[in-house]
Computed example of a mutant assay.
Amino acid sequence: MSPLLEVVAASRMAQGRAIVSDISLRLQPGEMLGLLGPNGSGKSTLLGMMAGLIRPCRGQVRLKGLPMQALRRRRIAQLLALVAQSAETAERITVRQAVELGRIPRLGPLRPWRPRDDEAVAAALKAVDMAHLAGRDWSSLSGGERQRAHIARALAQAPRILLLDEPTNHLDIHHQIAILDLIAGLSVTTVVALHDMHHALRCDRVLVMRDGRCAALGPPAQVLTPELIRDIFAVKAEIIPHPRTGRPVFDFERLC
């Protein structure tokens, strides 16, 4: 059986420079894959390719065994949702109306809005702790509130694959943990670009990128070694067990 989403030797060039080079991976059903790497390492471009928004110059991205470019956007949107880093809207709409947009791929001439759509929107708002803000004007939201609403829109879409580009940006620590707990508890396959290595430890696997290439891929406990962190991020790292839980904790020191 073909994997739900597969990247096959995919590369992307921009202005004569390789942004993503020869990346291959298969997403395992229900797994949470973290993307790590310095700024400019190609994480957002790879996510855009996986979402079908950026076409590889070489290689392919396949969804259910078919090349992404062979599928209609509506079909892609029924299977996959992307929460982009710079997602925004200039429309004068409420939070609930913004989240309702996630149901569009499920609607059609023979499939009007139904009570189940209201239920999906309500459940998505509740999942990100935004139900009490459903009637608020979008323009009145803080950056963190907008981020949570975008995630709710993606959840309302009911995808089988969820792609998130640094979803904890602009969030306070309470909502960072809440969002990551929510993502980990979803019965979907998830790819999430992250900066915080402690957050990456929640993932089943991590793909570490450098200069558009795969530097390492595997379980975080095996991949995120002091040697790799020093090589990729140019910092000295010590991994110590938490005194209460025993979970690994990173201590970083800038290299001179």
Results as ranks from 00 to 15, higher is better:
170 H>R: 02
215 A>T: 06
215 A>Y: 07
29 P>T: 09
155 L>G: 12
21 S>N: 10
207 L>D: 02
84 A>Y: 03
250 F>R: 02
207 L>V: 14
200 A>G: 10
123 A>K: 11
84 A>R: 04
15 Q>E: 15
225 T>I: 09
9 A>Y: 03
101 L>R: 15
119 E>S: 13
131 A>M: 10
106 R>D: 11
145 E>W: 06
114 R>N: 04
52 G>V: 05
217 L>T: 05
8 V>F: 02
40 G>W: 09
208 V>G: 02
245 T>E: 01
141 L>R: 05
109 P>S: 04
42 G>T: 02
235 V>R: 00
142 S>F: 06
27 L>G: 03
25 L>R: 11
118 D>S: 13
58 R>T: 13
226 P>W: 01
165 D>M: 10
124 A>F: 07
211 D>C: 02
127 A>P: 06
185 G>W: 07
45 T>E: 00
92 R>L: 14
81 A>F: 05
44 S>D: 02
150 H>C: 12
62 R>E: 07
68 M>S: 07
237 A>G: 08
12 R>Q: 15
125 L>W: 03
10 A>L: 09
69 Q>I: 08
31 E>W: 08
72 R>E: 14
237 A>F: 05
245 T>S: 00
205 R>T: 11
87 A>W: 04
242 H>F: 00
29 P>Y: 07
166 E>I: 12
245 T>L: 01
72 R>F: 06
25 L>K: 09
29 P>F: 05
43 K>I: 04
164 L>R: 01
73 R>H: 10
225 T>Q: 01
5 L>A: 09
255 L>T: 13
17 R>E: 12
74 R>Y: 06
64 K>H: 14
151 I>A: 08
112 P>L: 06
12 R>D: 11
241 P>N: 02
135 G>R: 09
222 Q>H: 12
159 P>G: 01
177 I>L: 15
179 I>F: 10
111 R>S: 15
241 P>C: 00
256 C>T: 11
113 W>H: 11
151 I>W: 01
75 R>C: 06
139 S>R: 15
233 F>G: 01
224 L>S: 08
252 F>H: 06
23 I>E: 05
149 A>L: 10
48 G>L: 12
32 M>C: 12
163 L>A: 06
32 M>N: 03
134 A>H: 03
175 H>R: 12
109 P>G: 01
34 G>F: 08
233 F>V: 01
168 T>G: 08
100 E>Y: 00
12 R>I: 10
177 I>S: 12
89 T>S: 15
165 D>E: 03
131 A>Q: 14
139 S>P: 00
138 W>A: 06
223 V>M: 07
111 R>I: 07
46 L>T: 06
239 I>Q: 00
193 A>K: 02
107 L>A: 08
49 M>A: 04
175 H>W: 15
226 P>F: 01
233 F>L: 04
